[in-house]
Design a protein around this nucleic acid. Structure first.
Lengths: 214, 214
DNA sequence: GTCTATATGAGGATAGAC
DNA sequence: GTCTATCCTCATATAGAC
């Protein structure tokens, strides 16, 4: 348990401490953020449906009833994680692309940063990519919209690189999906066992070769 | 509903018809196989925990009680899908590697066939990769063992290609994971919207470039 | 905002007749 | 092997006191 005035999460330095800051400015009470962080840990570890409201409450030494002062339902909790997670992910992607105006460095930066993001925020990333279909229809819509943007951003870099003759790409759609797969699948296997930046660097090299002439 | 003597599944030609044959020689009754196929469709669509035994029974026009003549529990059903799915996946991988004795063609075949396998059997593949941690400890063990084999097979081809000077690989472990990611992530996004063989062919080209000199 | 207590229903699994 | 009926647990969510 955290004590009053102590807003650190056990295991500071890991991804939960990182994502904590995402909600730092939110109007929600600190206790709300603890509920959120506990949910992230559990949803990522067991999955949304396998996590009960009791699991979350127990982890915080709280009653289930108390949780409902912060969130109206378990699904609303998933929505908060999922939407914010998606938004932060595209933010990272866009920042990487904006770091240059040439397709080559853009592709390298994009894969490097997006891969590192998935390693660094692997718990949220797992929820973002594998639990989203547990959202209600209304909550799913804005999330899917962000996902379309994500793929479009990657495809755009590829298409511009191909048009400029920098890249050799026979199929933008398939290559774009493959690049996204590379980054996203990190959320499936990553367990803190590799340095996010080194991993991103290595994947950026792979990506550049994927679009280089045979 | 299927009628007596009719062992086809609605939507023949899709992956459910394909996997049906995996259990053709099993000592189980045809009705057992229908329970299994319905479970595959539902586990893949909604996830294991979101699927109820009533969902499965309803889909077959059967009572929940009747299902228990075929499987002792929902988890046993998951285990059957998951273990057989894993076995068939390595089978495909090993066959691809055995198609040549040179690392270059082996890598191409491996990525081509493993990618195509994931597209062709996307429902089972989704369960194999995303629902396995819902297995009981006892059932999880043999499955994890197969997964280690899978990665080892890929890494071995990479290592031999690197040793022979055919490939330029700075990091076998990271590149091996990236190659597996490429194939596996197909299970996440694929919805029958691309030709499995063409997709595999394209991915094989990407893979070869990933290990080619910069 | 947190507690205890509880309403309400869903879900996995079994019993026993046919 | 299938049905109907049912057991029993557990899960989400709410009510009302402090």
């Amino acid at each position: 348990m955290t004590t009053a005035g102590d807003d650190r999460w056990p295991g500071a330095g890991d991804d939960l401490q990182l994502v904590h800051d995402w909600w730092a400015d939110s109007p929600r009470a600190p206790a709300s953020q603890q509920v959120l962080l506990a949910s992230i840990a559990l949803f990522a570890e067991r999955g949304y449906h396998a996590t009960t409201t009791r699991d979350i409450a127990t982890r915080l030494g709280m009653s289930t009833g108390a949780m409902y002062a912060h969130y109206r339902s378990k699904e609303e909790l998933l929505f908060d994680v999922c939407l914010t997670g998606h938004q932060r992910a595209v933010d990272a992607l866009q920042a990487a692309i904006a770091s240059s105006d040439r397709p080559g460095p853009q592709l390298a930066a994009l894969v490097r940063e997006f891969t590192a993001w998935h390693a660094r925020h692997h718990r949220v990333a797992r929820i973002v990519h594998y639990e989203l279909y547990s959202l209600s229809g209304e909550h799913l819509t804005p999330v899917l919209e962000i996902r379309r943007t994500t793929q479009a951003l990657i495809d755009d870099v590829l298409a511009r690189g191909a048009a400029a003759g920098t890249f050799t790409v026979t199929d933008v759609a398939r290559t774009g999906r493959a690049l996204l797969s590379l980054c996203v699948d990190v959320a499936r296997w990553y367990r803190g066992d590799d340095d996010p930046d080194e991993l991103g660097e290595h994947y950026a090299g792979l990506a550049l070769r994927m679009v280089s002439g045979g």
